[in-house]
Computed example of a mutant assay.
Amino acid sequence: MPGPQGPWEPVREDLAETGAAVVYGTLGTWSAYLQQPEVLQPLLGRDWARYLSQPHPRSKERFLASRLLLRQAAAEAIGTVPELVDLAYHPGGRPYVRGCDQIDISLSHTEEVMIVGVTRRGRIGVDVELAGRRMAGTASETQGFTHVELADLDRAPASRRNDLLVRLWTLKEAYSKALGQGLRFRFTEFGFALDGAGARLMQPDGRPVAGGSAWTFVTFLVEPRYVVSVAVYDSGFGGGVDLSVETALDDGLLDTLLRASDWR
């Protein structure tokens, strides 16, 4: 997504057709829209204090651009404007839209790339890593993967080992984010069997996880130096959900909120 102007129609189409959408932006293109300080505080809302607390100009820029992308994507999903998206955070840091449990959101960023996931079917987690991140032969390899995963890697060509490790790591990050656990969930307590661009959730001993069919996992490249993995849990809500805030809220309440914000 090159900027707030979109095009956002593919996001709405994906949500309507599949129940989930994933968008990405680059820091350079999105930070170009953040040169008007007078609009930053109302745009960030309760994130304003977190923005001011960022220790370095670069971290401030990344925080600002990533929250703008997240707010814009959530706004498009529920049919409103970013200024009216009230972002909040669970104790573990997982973001959500306050007062709008029709959707679930997830955010990840590294270096120049920001990823946002939105779903109306249940839970979503996204993660992005530099494709060239070195993991083979490091502590991450021995501490972050099951014995079955490492045995599978041993059977793969040595030239692909690091690429597969990065892919598995991003899948684990995305899955744990969807669960709301982050790095508190030990990565040796679950594993993945890679299957084309997708993956299947496995127990540490290599057996399929009960109920794992409700999860969808996919990995792809962007920009193209970055590996992105997405985990989506279908809670069985179905596909016929109208996400617009205008239908999700009582008409009288909506009118009161709009008058209070002076937005139509």
Rank of each mutant, 00 (worst) to 15 (best):
P42T: 07
D47V: 08
W215P: 09
R225Y: 01
T29G: 11
L221N: 04
G238W: 03
P95Q: 03
G180M: 00
T138K: 13
G25C: 13
A174N: 05
Q203L: 04
A139N: 13
T80V: 07
A32Q: 14
A49E: 15
G92A: 14
T256S: 10
F145I: 13
L249E: 15
H90E: 10
G180A: 00
V113W: 03
T216F: 08
W263Y: 06
A178W: 07
F192V: 10
W215K: 08
D86S: 13
Q181F: 07
Q143C: 12
L194H: 06
A131N: 05
R120G: 15
G236N: 04
N162W: 05
A156F: 03
P4F: 00
L150W: 09
S213A: 13
D14Y: 03
W30F: 02
L84Y: 02
F237H: 15
G212W: 03
T247H: 09
V222M: 01
E17N: 14
E13F: 13
V118F: 11
V113Y: 03
G196K: 01
A32P: 11
Q203V: 03
L44K: 14
M114E: 11
A75Y: 01
V245L: 10
T110I: 03
K172S: 09
L44C: 13
D47A: 03
T26Y: 07
G137E: 14
T170C: 01
L253H: 03
P91E: 14
A193W: 05
A260C: 08
R225V: 05
W30G: 10
L257K: 02
R134W: 05
S261E: 12
R50Q: 14
G252C: 12
W263D: 15
P224C: 00
I78E: 12
D101G: 05
R71M: 10
L15I: 03
A20I: 12
V222Y: 00
Q203Y: 01
E13W: 12
Q203C: 04
S53C: 11
P37T: 10
R264Y: 00
P37L: 04
H56R: 14
A193V: 12
L87H: 09
Y24R: 05
A74K: 06
M1S: 13
V148S: 12
E223Q: 05
T26E: 15
P10N: 02
I78R: 07
Y226A: 04
R259F: 02
A73V: 02
A151P: 06
G45P: 11
W215T: 14
F145L: 09
L27S: 11
R184D: 15
E17Q: 15
A197P: 10
D195Y: 02
D163G: 07
N162Q: 11
L254G: 10
L165M: 07
G206N: 10
V116L: 01
A178Y: 11
R120L: 12
R155D: 15
R155H: 11
Q41G: 11
V230R: 02
L87T: 08
